[in-house]
Amino acid sequence: MKTKLSITAIFLCSIVVFLSLSSLKSKQPSVQELIGAWKYGTPSNQTVLINSATAFAVTTYNLPGKKFISSYGGSWRLDGNTMVRKIEFNSANPDEVGKEIRVSIGLSGDKLTAGKEQFARLDNGRPGELAGAWIIIGNYKNDVLQKSPVIFKSRRTMKILSGTRFQWIAYDIDSKKLLNSGGGTYETSNGMYGESIEFFTKSPEGVGRRLEFEYTFDGDNWRHKGKSSTGGVVDECWVRRESLEK
């Protein structure tokens, strides 16, 4: 009788251990769990992934060397444990633009595996008030919005933000060209939005600068007002990408 009880106890303990170990392995994540910023690599060759609920951008750059290396992104959706990415820009491999790329993913704590890449979480979409994907739709002149005649077509400018990271990308889907991009870290406080630039495709001299802007909301619109890295006046209107995709 004691032998049977011992065998049963060992069997139950084995199940508990197995379940405990299984819980430590990567699990099938939800969209909400993937939102935010992720990173791997060293400062001289680091890769940052920013996910909003529907869009993403992955960029590799050399921060101390002030060198942009590559960037790709677009829209994404979740299919089980697979991230299905629709590529809208890819500086290193433009032939991927327009294609759907399926990437197997797994999440274990603050570690994200995406294909062969392993990222560590930087934030979960907080605390920044501007988290999400935005598309520029026009500029203000004398406080009056002048909308672009062409919005969210082949040629577009998207800005994607997590809770602490940002990247803007100007690109053309039809020509498969990434036209310009920049990004880094940001903060929001009392109606002010501050960017610290970590990469910039056009001018490495912009890396290391901090820019301050005012920001206000009008429904889905974000008014972005201040001065650019070259000193020019900026008074832009951005709208959440999701509102254009409805």
Rank of each mutant, 00 (worst) to 15 (best):
A133C: 13
A37K: 00
K25C: 09
D95K: 09
S44H: 01
S22Y: 03
V48A: 11
K147V: 12
L12S: 10
S23I: 00
S22L: 06
T54C: 01
G98R: 09
V239T: 09
S52D: 01
S6T: 03
E117Y: 11
W222V: 02
G74D: 11
G80W: 04
N221T: 15
I197S: 12
R210I: 08
G184S: 06
I101C: 12
G132M: 04
K25V: 07
G184Y: 05
M83Q: 12
A170G: 10
K111W: 04
T230R: 09
Y171F: 15
G106F: 03
S243H: 11
V84I: 15
N45F: 08
V48S: 04
K141I: 08
T185H: 03
K227F: 10
G98S: 04
N180W: 11
I7H: 12
S203I: 00
Y171S: 06
T42M: 13
V48D: 05
Q32A: 13
I136E: 14
H224S: 03
D123V: 09
G208K: 06
G206Y: 14
K67Y: 03
F200K: 05
G231Q: 01
N139E: 14
T185N: 11
I87Y: 07
R121S: 07
L178H: 13
I197Q: 11
K141A: 07
K159D: 06
I50T: 13
S22G: 09
V58M: 05
K27V: 01
N62R: 02
P127D: 00
R223N: 11
Q46F: 03
L107R: 11
T164L: 00
W134S: 07
S196A: 04
N142T: 05
N93C: 14
N142L: 09
N124P: 08
G73D: 11
I35S: 01
I135T: 03
Y186V: 15
